[in-house]
Design a protein around this nucleic acid. Sequence first.
DNA 1: TGTCAGGTTTCGG
DNA 2: CCGAAACCTGAC
Length: 287
Amino acid sequence: MNKLQLNNYNFQHTLLGGQAFNWDFINGAYYGFTQSRVIKIIEKDNYILWQTYPENDEFGFLTKYLNIDNEYEKKLLHISKKDKYIKVAVEEYKGLRLLNQDFHQTLLSFILSSHKSVKGVRKAVHDLSRSFGNKIEVDGLTISLFPEIEVLSTLAENEFRSLGFGFRAKYFKEALFKIINNELLIINNNDENEVRRQLIDITGIGEKIADCIMTFSLGFQNITPLDIWGKRVLIDFYGIDPKLKYSEMREWYQNYFQEDTALAGQYLFEYIRGKGRGSVGRNSELV
DNA sequence: TGTCAGGTTTCGG
DNA sequence: CCGAAACCTGAC
């Protein structure tokens, strides 16, 4: 395997948290899959051992995917200075990073996240891959890749329903139709509002899921998706009115954390989720 | 055993 | 614009 010097990168929090659903921890190694490759990572003290398959040694892909960033420490310092909540979150979850994932896989995975827990989404993504993805043998494990768009686009809504996608099956199919017909022209667009508008145009994608896709696969570091936990952070930590609209809450985060909003958001969400529901104060009644 | 979910759409006001 | 119900299924 290849060796890469790497400090302050927490793989458990980063790969198995809420931003990706394509990683498993098996026998001391992390295995992740995309549409075309498997990535294996073994975490050591100040370095990692890594390998890609079937093509080996794809260093450029790895560093881009893991979003290895020389400014990371500086960013942590920046957000930690804001207040005691983010400071404690950064201390407790140090090494949490933002991934830079494949756009199509991220879009489709997050359509499945609607009204589902992380665990449920991970199951759905794995079931989909097992059923329709190419297989790669690594370390005696049979790992299923995320299915090719061309394969998925031939499937009927009912085939997605039988995978347990439920009401999301129809949305999933519509998204595939738009992808295969090149109706999404946003990959290289930097206009935050325009990108969000195009994503929300897909049925089944609202503001939150659009922001997930933008933050985790399109490189928007100055926004953060606001799930239920993100709202609890605002209410419990910062005393924000629970009645604010989604967009107003997101703008609050953006004004507060500026260019590092995505990173701060991830830290705060992991922190408050880790503490468990209802244990953060008396204001946790937001649904 | 029954409730409910890290969300979105649809419908009624 | 705003609140409430419905949506599939698995997880607790």
